[in-house]
């Protein structure tokens, strides 16, 4: 199994796709997440991401391991940013290659859903009138 897992200031979704492409896989599915310019009709100026990097990498490796086990994917790339990001900028890119498309779609959806639930990364959303840590309160 081949995997590319990284947290950095800037990520390139094309790098994730290029990493997973190979002759043994018939399908590649990619999820690219970027900063929205509004939340509940409020203009978003920027997001600031923070992570507990050593643990975040371990949790991302666990997700990749589960993807190999459940869907027999061949290659996985999971890239996430840290630091300040403006609307439109890419913050997460996940690319999955599998022999067939069904497995690739399911595994990619599992990866982004699980990343949001288990990987220790936090984002603060900045508006014109202040900032909030996303999802902190019920």
């Amino acid at each position: 199994m081949e995997q590319l897992i990284r947290i950095s200031d800037n990520i390139d979704a094309a790098e994730a796709v290029a990493f997973v492409q190979s002759e043994e896989s018939g399908g590649v599915v990619t999820f690219i997440g970027s900063v929205r310019n509004q939340t509940k009709q409020k203009k978003v100026l920027k997001l600031v991401f923070e992570c507990y990097e050593p643990m975040a990498i371990l949790e991302m490796e666990k997700i990749a391991a589960q993807m190999y086990e459940k869907w027999q994917v061949k290659r996985v790339a999971m890239l996430h940013v840290t630091g300040e990001k403006l609307p439109g900028e890419v913050v997460v890119a996940i690319a999955v290659a599998a022999p067939h498309r069904g497995a690739a779609f399911e595994a990619c959806q599992y990866a982004i859903d699980t990343l949001k639930e288990t990987v220790p990364i936090w984002k603060q959303e900045f508006f014109e009138d202040g900032a909030v840590w996303v999802a902190a309160h019920p």
Partner: peptide, 10 residues
């Protein structure tokens, strides 16, 4: 030891 508040990655 780390305190992990609600996550919001992705």
């Amino acid at each position: 030891i780390a305190i992990i508040p609600p996550l919001s990655g992705g």
